[in-house]
Design a protein around this nucleic acid. Structure first.
Lengths: 265, 265
DNA sequence: TCGCCTGATTCCACTTAGTGGAAATCAGGG
DNA sequence: CCCTGATTTCCACTAAGTGGAATCAGGCGA
């Protein structure tokens, strides 16, 4: 007898699809391959259900089987989707070239990100290096929202309800440091509201500043600049903040110019 | 009364999940945003069903709503998945650095791709340019399997059944040129089997050569080299073929060395 | 080599979750 | 303000999905 608890089905969504997506999301950087058992544990789904869903995901190209180890890894189709996302993003289309030029001009890293649950996802992260061949561009990398300037700038621009919901999740996730962390987050958010940007050094020797980009009818983005192998200081923060705000102004100007292009092909 | 035709459900898969994935796949480069109506047309699904599934996809971060136009676009989470795929790919982990070095050394484009349905998907495409700042790396781009050296090398290495299924799809898709195209494809496949690689010029002024990479327990990959703004010729094909085969040998050697690393973290 | 043992897959009766046509709602333009 | 075209919600229906139990496969130790 199925003891299944109710799923508020009907018009509210689709349970199987939700579960399938959760399975895909169980594959994060660091966990390259997962077997049905591990997936079942992580997603807290019955094993038979997982078995069926992974089969479907394989059939539709989202997962590859690794028969030798009886497990799965993400398949090439997810990369196409990611590429589609980047190509379809009007903001990236406009800001990408500007960001690359600015990275070279200022000799620092420039990034554009948006939120996904409790993480920030880089649409593009341009890693500056004095040697041109060592510069690189990364897309899709995740960084924690509550610990980074990027995430805090994003939070500052979010509608109150959404922000509060997220902050609740940070607390639940890491109750130990919730107090002090929350204070830091609030401070950054106030900084964004007052000065337009916030500065955070969450990795030793790295200083980052970030500012939100808000466009009507589009998700909130955050733009950052960062340098590594430096000594974080007030003065440096202020200087990078200047650069960032000047750049963000140019970005917003460019974005608001041919606004139609944002929504047309 | 639901006139729904049977879906061979049960152990064979999950219909809702299939449909949800098809909706995501409807967003291809070129179609940045889609409304529920267009999605319904393209996927041939009932509108109410699409409405429910898109709602779920939004809730789980795979789609963003564009309320102003009442439609959807791919969301940041798909980019994370793509990044996860790249980070989790043991082959790319090993070959990426080699490919970048080889691109610089030989002054040409180097790419690694795998198949997704009837398209090839670049895990990495390194675009050589004399000016280092203009070099770029792209991931996730799709190119047609039957028209490219990449795709034909891939086909040549596929198990017979899978290859025949795909060739059937090419024919169905474009019955007009099926004859001549099929001959070309077969010729390329024979070239791969005889010489290890095939050469194709499917874009004017661009010549590409490709060879398959087959590893036990992993999907088939194809490695290519290409040059643009040149005059395709037999001699050039042969030269690039030499380079490619030499490089592929090094790749295979590197891959088979620490084989464990392919499957371990 | 053989048989245990762990984990994946398939089976199957149950019923909930999903379906799709129709009605209601919404947004936008004339 | 009403009309129009599209989208969302409603709702009765039942097929599709579910999950526990049985079966199967494959690796390991004896």
């Amino acid at each position: 007898m199925a003891s299944a608890r109710q799923y508020a089905g009907g018009a509210n969504g689709n349970r199987s699809l939700e579960r399938g997506i959760e399975i895909l999301r169980a594959f994060r950087p660091g966990v390259d391959t997962l077997g049905n058992g591990e997936i079942a544990e992580r997603t807290r789904l019955p094993r038979s259900t997982v078995s069926r869903l992974t089969k479907t995901l394989v059939k539709f190209g989202m997962l590859d089987e690794v028969p030798i180890e009886r497990n799965y890894r993400l398949a090439a189709a997810v990369l196409s989707l990611g590429h589609g996302f980047r190509m379809g993003s009007p903001v990236l289309k406009v800001l990408g070239p500007l960001m690359r030029a600015e990275s070279t001009r200022r000799r620092l890293n420039v990034g554009l990100a948006s939120g996904d649950r409790t993480m920030m996802v880089y649409l593009e992260s341009i890693r500056y290096n004095p040697r041109p061949t060592l510069r690189s561009i990364v897309a899709g990398q995740q960084v924690p929202m509550e610990l980074t300037s990027l995430g805090r700038a994003y939070l500052a621009a979010l509608p109150d309800a959404a922000r509060d919901r997220l902050i609740g999740q940070f607390k639940r996730r890491n109750a130990a440091v919730a107090k002090t962390l929350n204070a830091d987050v609030q401070k950054s958010i106030r900084a964004v509201k007052r000065y337009g940007y916030c500065a955070v050094s969450w990795q030793p020797g790295v200083l980052a500043v970030a500012t939100p980009i808000v466009l009507d009818g589009l998700p909130v983005y955050a733009l950052n600049m960062s340098m590594q192998d430096i000594e974080p200081s007030e003065a440096l923060s202020a200087e990078m903040g200047e650069y960032l705000m000047a750049f963000a102004d140019r970005c917003k100007h460019t974005l608001s110019g041919p606004r139609d292009e944002l929504f047309q092909a």
